[in-house]
Design a protein around this nucleic acid. Structure first.
Lengths: 375, 375
DNA sequence: GTGCCCAGTGAATCCACTC
DNA sequence: AGAGTGGATTCACTGGGCA
């Protein structure tokens, strides 16, 4: 199957998980049971938006007397802090089991639950990569003036262990952020307007997340074709964005109302075409070129003299692509490192050669070589 | 005592806590022992900046080869996650004992430790009021491009229990924030320049906190004359700010070097007069919009075609906010520069999109986005 | 005095692949 | 599996030197 093949299925519903991975399917089940039935090490990424254990007191009213529509659903009720803790550890244990070794998990929460979640994540052996702050552009004010406006939520991003490999599309994130490294604080508006799912004028789900949030998460930490599981699927934001970005999805939710709304929504979501997805800058795009190839092929003559940008060192290119500068001999990288007394050095950008227009890094020669030799 | 009466003591040192509250004093002791010796329910506010348990690996070098000066101090070394957990619960237990019923505690941390701290805070019966994000205006980048730039730290603010009363100076915070409710995300630069304590040109403490941060905390959650305890006093930022704001302080630290520096610093700190209080506000961050945000938020679809004003070039928008035009791929600015063979280019004005009214620069989309998302 | 350029630095869990 | 090596990787700000 091609990596960029579109996922055009409408989505399915099942009451028990089939023996193979139920791709692009909502499992209408308890999330812990459903995850138990999934095969070990089969999922590339998990995005989880668990109940927040809000522990709201009585009703809350705005200054004008109108009632605030709080989260009072049964699924957010836990008898105690320790019951919530137990629930958290159970679903996280299953999550860890079904994640591939190089998979990652994202969990979103507020101060009511995120410390319990993060503590459990660490205890279970996950390795936290970042905590991310979603700064809400338009949060609900604190009507009573008793605290700071609760204007953010926290996400935890973790790999399966300290040494685990994981996907991070660094270049895509940097491009997305106008050529600056993407930071750990992200700003998005809360989900509203046309995007907010409503039925008979009433919002379907109390905590629907904005698609822009999932968009950035999936773009950052998955590859096209990866399988993304959301154990608290709700109205299916994860599925809709996964479809748009050419990722496969699995959702779990017990509530028929949410499942229905999610299916409809995902069916209507349009996948991006290939051109938009392939513009992502893969770090592996260019094949590796050894410095020696440039010498072999006459792009740089043996005996040429290279210098660093500030003319502090002069080195001579050997016939085998080695470099010699005083007593230091070896690869362009090794000699650069020795001369700077550094543990490592990128010889491609450190060494320069003289041109009529001034000094140029030898990486420019590599680019010329690549352009001439690549189809 | 007058609201703005200055606290003019120079500060003292003691090796054991006296039977009365040792105001404006640094206890050069282990923090748990010192807190054990303090009377119950005697402290109005605790600010704590405990070790983060960073667990750093080997050396880290910048792209230019220079070494990063890491936090390698003994006080940040713990045998295991559970040893850190135990330490955390011990000092928090004492903190809770010595807090007045209507006192509050603030703890700052990073993702390495804050989930353990928050979890313990909840287990010990504290009631979390807010979590606060300190967004660093100038964080250290992620040099290897392996994760998101770790650009924030988290503070937890908690009372002694669900029904406890506590001090929150709502009006002061609203005034400080240009008559808008103060949010849970605060932006400050990291501590540097003249403010950073140095001895023989070397920073005295690896993790000195900015005074602006403590200033906002003390202004928000204490009254003049209140007693503020800092069990991890370091170079005494809490003491210096407390003195400036007319609050009493108690510091605890084992390291003689830090204690010395803190005493000297606090002696030099001047209580501010009322007129100066308003000058401490952090400058409002100018809203910066990355091109990728427009794509993420659906203001411009991935796959859209952009052209320059004279239709010389056509480019396609990628899912990550990149642009692709022939072989050139990258940000709107980068691709514009390549096509014009110029060192740089303002992509916002260079690239246009087709509308029924003709070509419009994509900067128009940015303006629309700003209007929709800024308050 | 002013402005430009260069060097230095900050709570950091910071590489990938082959042999 | 541990060592070796190719080579990819940084943002905002401060302060000093020099023109």
């Amino acid at each position: 199957m091609g990596v960029l093949e579109k996922v055009k299925t409408r989505g399915r519903v099942a009451e028990t998980p089939p023996p193979v991975l139920p791709l692009d399917t909502i499992l209408r089940m308890d999330c812990i049971e459903a995850m138990r039935a999934l095969p070990a090490k089969s999922i590339d990424m998990i995005f989880a938006d668990p109940p927040y254990n809000l522990q709201l007191g009585g009703d809350l009213n705005r200054p004008d007397g109108s009632a605030v529509d709080a989260v009072t659903d049964d699924w957010d009720k836990f008898d105690s802090l320790s019951a919530y803790d137990k629930f958290t550890r159970e679903w996280l244990t299953q999550a860890r089991r079904i994640l591939k070794d190089d998979g990652t998990i994202w969990v979103i929460g507020s101060y009511h639950n995120i410390f319990k979640v993060g503590s459990a994540i660490q205890d279970l052996g996950f390795w936290i990569l970042n905590d991310i702050i979603w700064r809400k552009a338009n949060p609900m004010p604190n009507f009573k003036g008793t605290r700071f406006t609760n204007a953010h939520e926290t996400l935890i991003w973790a790999s399966t262990g300290e040494k685990a490999r994981y996907t991070f599309n660094y270049r895509s994130m940097k491009t997305l952020n106008d050529e600056l490294q993407m930071r750990s604080d992200w700003e998005f508006p809360i989900c509203g307007g046309q995007e907010r799912l409503k039925k008979d004028g009433v919002k379907v789900h109390p905590t629907q997340k904005p698609e822009a949030l999932l968009y950035r998460i999936l773009l950052a930490a998955t590859k096209p074709g990866d399988v993304v599981l959301d154990p608290f699927f709700g109205t299916g934001t994860t599925g809709a964005v996964a479809k748009r970005l050419g990722r496969r999805w699995i959702g779990i939710d017990r509530e028929g109302l949410y499942v229905e709304a999610a299916l409809e929504r995902i069916a209507a979501a349009l996948p991006l075409d290939e051109s938009a997805l392939t513009t992502m800058q893969a770090p592996k795009a260019a094949p590796r070129v050894a410095f020696g190839q440039l010498v072999e092929n006459g792009y740089l003559a043996a005996g040429s003299v290279l210098t660093d940008a500030k003319h502090r060192h002069r080195a001579v290119v050997g016939a085998d692509g080695s470099l010699k500068c005083g007593d230091a001999t070896g690869s362009i990288h090794k000699v650069g490192a020795i001369l700077q007394d550094a543990p490592s050095c990128n010889g491609w950008t450190y060494w320069h050669y003289e041109t009529p227009e001034g000094l140029k890094p030898i990486d420019a020669v590599r680019q010329t070589y690549l352009l001439a030799t690549q189809p």
